[in-house]
Amino acid sequence: MFERTLCAVAALLLTAHAAGQDLLEADVAFRSSARLVKPGLIEIRYDTAPGYYLYRDRLAFSVDPATSALGKPKLPPGKVKHDEFFGDSVIYRNHTVVTIPLTAAAGAQSVTLTADLQGCADIGVCYPPVRRTFALSTTPK
């Protein structure tokens, strides 16, 4: 009886797996979050699903209000991906952490960080550029 149950569970698992071959939505494939880790320093984390990657050169950041300012992002080295038709690109997989210095405008309690990204799936499709915004307090919680 128990073996039969196990077989049924296995069949269900296999069916679910076969049905799950669809590609992920960009929001699921390329998850990201941002927080202020200490006064004047923003940390952005990218959690990229297995089989997907982000282009380093497609990461871009800006801050609002414009009277606040971002410093130069500290980007990890990443891996070089060679493509016969696209050339060499630096890419990020799995977990990636980027830090950016923030000079908040005098008296600003919060800022809005805009973070652009673009990536592809190894299977051979690319996603259009994605823009995400994060409301950040200028003092760490």
Partner: peptide
């Protein structure tokens, strides 16, 4: 297609 899409170029 799009210029930013590597497989498109292929």
């Amino acid at each position: 297609w799009a210029p930013w899409c590597a497989p498109c170029r292929e």
